[in-house]
């Protein structure tokens, strides 16, 4: 079969152009020397240096990183726990209801998630700030973590855990010294996924953030409303870089884990 027919080539080009031209333009214009966003006036990195001197942006970046780090750690712990119960808990009453309830937030409109969290925080009298954003991000990203981790757990031989218990481990010791090292790639890629989701989020954060807790996406959005500036382009380019790095690392880790598993199986088969 010929793979590069003109039809295939055009489909591929069109598809990827549609996806990536907007971002490409943004990245190119972030290196624009002109103050006008739409006029090219030569290459320059001045907007990047300006960005790093803009305290408002630096503050927002810190808030975002802090929120991202803490919420993804919390989401990873909670999501792994949920995945473990769902895969290993056996059949208990309402199990399928619970497992579909874990997936539901993935398709829930963010506006609704944000609004309901806002109402919750107001009703229990929690002041909105960094802490509430962390809570909100943990809430929605733990679902993603649990999906990633449970798919790994499902392909995991239960008797390995039983063997650990048989050799004198407590259930927790067995999880820590046997299960966790084996599912670690999935847990790490879940963490990276949660981290990038938290970096990206605008909608939920804008519902639950307070006056002193502006995340980068909120900052960008509000500055854009006052007019485009090349500084925002530079900032966005940096965020694209971070998110791309996160997603790529996460997928490389899980791909590698799959490859290694396959290789081990092949080798085992060969040695049979």
């Amino acid at each position: 079969m010929k793979r590069f027919t003109w039809f295939n080539t055009i489909s591929l080009t069109l598809g990827f152009a549609f996806l990536y031209i907007p971002m490409l333009i943004l990245i190119i214009y972030s290196f624009n020397a002109s103050k006008l966003v739409t006029v090219w006036a030569g290459f320059s990195t001045q907007w990047y240096s300006r960005l790093f001197n803009n305290e408002a942006f630096i503050d927002a970046a810190w808030v975002t990183l802090k929120v991202g780090f803490i919420s993804s750690c919390a989401a990873t712990i909670l999501g792994t726990m949920i995945a473990y119960i769902m895969v290993r808990g056996g059949r208990f009453y309402g199990r399928s209801l619970f497992s579909s309830m874990i997936y539901a937030p993935l398709v829930m409109p963010e506006v609704i998630t944000g609004l309901s969290l806002l109402l919750l925080f107001i009703s229990i009298g929690l002041d909105r700030g960094v802490f509430t954003i962390i809570l909100a991000h943990t809430t929605f990203s733990m679902c993603y973590v649990s999906v990633v981790v449970s798919s790994r757990l499902a392909s995991f031989d239960v008797s390995i855990e039983e063997a650990a218990i048989d050799l004198g481990c407590t259930a927790f010791d067995a999880f820590r010294s046997v299960t966790l090292p084996i599912i670690a790639p999935a847990v790490i890629s879940g963490w990276l996924l949660a981290f990038t989701l938290s970096l990206d989020d605008l909608v939920i954060a804008s519902f639950v953030s307070g006056p002193a807790s502006t995340t980068l996406p909120i900052k960008i959005y509000s500055s854009v409303r006052l007019g485009l500036s090349p500084e925002i382009n530079a900032l966005s380019t940096l965020m694209i870089a971070v998110v791309t790095f996160g997603v790529l690392t996460s997928s490389i880790i899980s791909k590698r884990a799959i490859k290694r598993q396959k290789r081990e199986e092949e080798q085992a088969f060969k040695n049979g």
Partner: peptide
Amino acid sequence: ANKRSVNMMFQSYALFPHLTVADNIAFG
């Protein structure tokens, strides 16, 4: 369970894939 002087060899062997042969044996 961990005080019982009973051990089991599993059908799938259930070796710990992240540990060496010696560490597998030393596990218990």
